[in-house]
Design a protein around this nucleic acid. Structure first.
Lengths: 357, 357
DNA sequence: CTGTTAGCGCTTTCAT
DNA sequence: ATGAAAGCGCTAACAG
């Protein structure tokens, strides 16, 4: 019976789809009069295919509007070409730039971004569920993860690179901006300029970056025998305002140097100083930040700060990740980048002419 | 021959994997002593499965660290649970909030975001390629697409919702903020307050939003028999500065009301007015923007503007998209949202006490 | 260089 | 309620 079945020469072995569904490689194969695997090879770089066959396939594919199904190929190659990017608070003013850079760089390497924007630090586990389900090739994490959560990445064999974070417990690859060194540039200059009463506004307690920056600032102050009054902030504009008010009260209005754990709070503090206290910045109060976000450069602020080298850092994060996707056994390197001191005009960095006589 | 093959009762039909690879449903099935399809049903809501079986499967799954493979299930269900989000310039200050909201809302509905951040409007076609390959269930687009590109969404049967854009040519579902109405609120108040010389700084030529806002502003000015001097900007801080300088020159420094196509340019203009020209805002010059971004509220600016209802707009975009994923034949609705007038203090809205005698 | 043949890991009838 | 079997659309040996 089956001997009588007539197959058109060089035709696809499986039935072709109706024209109303998304075309598959079989449809293309049939139309081009080649085998399905020939079609597959046309869309896979490095496969040996004759120019003649190739052009026929391409023609058929275009006519049909065919595109290889990434899920099907991912299923078999075990490479989704997807990287999960986890970011805690996108609205942080600093992250949009980071996200844009990371996305672009991954895209240049043929990898797409599966975005997870955590608002509360709560729903992390639910997101990780999804990360595992999609069999991402790797992940870049700019959010706080518990040691257990971090360990899950190893368990699931998903290479991960932390961004401005640090693996607690287990060592994890990461790129960071040198908080210590950054604060040093700021603090030493403030001291040299003769400031006397220092205040610090920290970020939220659970922020690694905040801890480091505060630790750095305190360290370099202590090196010169100074101390600072510390108040807690939350990395937002309002925190700068609230923080300054608190510090003014605590220092009996003697505060003359304010170190903020990020730019946004520094901006909030500057506005508060001018608007609420009628204090001149930097004449009566020096304010410094950290990050180098775009608004820091605006004429109203010209913030004295340390700019993170976002381009180099994102490039490092991406290439470290790719390397680990290709070779999962690479050791967990940590790359630290120095920030660039931006003089600005929100802090006085020259020794005072009218210094105490 | 095959009659002699002995199968263990209730065991998986296919060989289970070695423990070094990611566990599959077969591994779980074997461990739980059930069939592979039973495992599948446990992870599919609404499937009939006995509580007893279920708990055994769950236990085995947890032990193995099993998660269903989204690519495999997507392959067969033809639902990737992926939505593509295309955003032109993430660093626009306005988009991070939009992106965060959209991501959150989709996430709440069990859908993940495949992010495409276009920097140049050039590489759009390359991105679309990827959009098709991943068989996304839908797309939200806040970027400029050519009519042909828009048509491709129909061709590929990918429901799409435009965000603050408008389908040229073919009608496409979209959510927009009412530019006309927004500008009206601004312009009529400026006129009522007795402003005389109006200037407008537009956004880039290819921006739909810019066109609409400028058109709106000009329309309402004309309604009252006024005209405005128009200069071109690019939606960034520098454009506000450059635009104001140009307008001051063109109006022989008589400019007293400046309408900017977005907040960022308004902020740039305010800084320029104060810093470069020594002009008081709003006493000598009123400046208004559009968007209601976070920095607009900062004490240095307190921008008079129109705030887009981002929450309602993103909610609308997401639910419109979901509806169209579930029923592709829904008509291409356009939903327009009114912006909220924010009085601020960067524009004078009261009739002048010392008006021309 | 090209076609054939097995699957990738899962969902889904269809029987039981 | 459960299991067996048939694919989803593609890649990857393997022959020829």
């Amino acid at each position: 019976m089956s001997n009588f079945v007539v197959k058109p020469a060089k035709a696809a072995a499986r039935p072709a789809q109706s024209p109303s569904t998304t075309p598959t490689s079989y449809d293309v194969a049939q139309k081009a009069g080649v085998s399905q695997s020939a079609v597959s090879r046309c869309f896979r770089p490095g496969s040996s295919i004759s120019p003649k066959t190739r052009s026929r396939v391409i023609a058929a594919a275009n006519e049909l509007g065919y595109f290889p199904n990434a899920m099907a190929s991912g299923l078999i190659t075990k490479r989704s070409n997807l990287v999960a990017v986890l970011i805690s608070n996108l609205t942080n003013l600093y992250y949009p730039e980071v996200l844009a850079e990371i996305t672009r760089r991954l895209s240049d390497r043929g990898i797409r971004v599966l975005l997870f924007a955590l608002q509360a630090e709560s729903d992390v586990d639910a997101m990780l569920d999804q990360v595992w389900r999609y069999r991402v090739d790797g992940a870049i994490v700019a959010a706080r993860l518990s040691p257990a959560q971090l360990l899950d990445f190893t368990r699931h064999r998903v290479p991960v690179v932390l961004y401005n974070r640090f693996g607690e417990g287990a060592p994890v690859p990461s790129v960071c901006c040198d908080s210590m060194g950054g604060e040093r540039q700021l603090v030493e200059r403030l001291i040299a300029a003769g400031h006397e009463v220092f205040g610090i506004i920290s970020g939220p307690d659970d922020s690694y970056v905040s801890q480091e920056r505060v630790r750095g600032a305190e360290h370099w102050l202590r090196e010169s025998g100074r101390e600072a009054v510390l108040v807690k902030g939350a990395f937002d504009y309002e925190s700068g305002d609230a923080g300054l008010r608190a510090l003014m009260e605590m220092t009996d209005r003697k505060l003359d140097a304010l170190i903020c754990a990020n730019d946004l709070m520094a901006i909030g503090a500057i506005d508060c100083a001018r608007t609420h206290f009628g204090i001149a910045v930097p004449q009566d109060l020096s304010v410094v930040g950290f990050d180098g976000v775009a608004p820091a450069e605006w004429a109203s602020y010209r913030l004295s700060t340390v700019r993170q080298p976002v381009r180099r850092m994102t490039e490092a994060a991406v290439s470290m990740l790719i390397e680990r996707i290709n070779d999962p056994d690479l050791p967990p390197e940590v790359r630290t980048f120095a920030g660039a001191f931006i003089e600005g005009t929100s802090a006085r960095f020259d020794a005072r002419a009218d210094s105490p006589a």
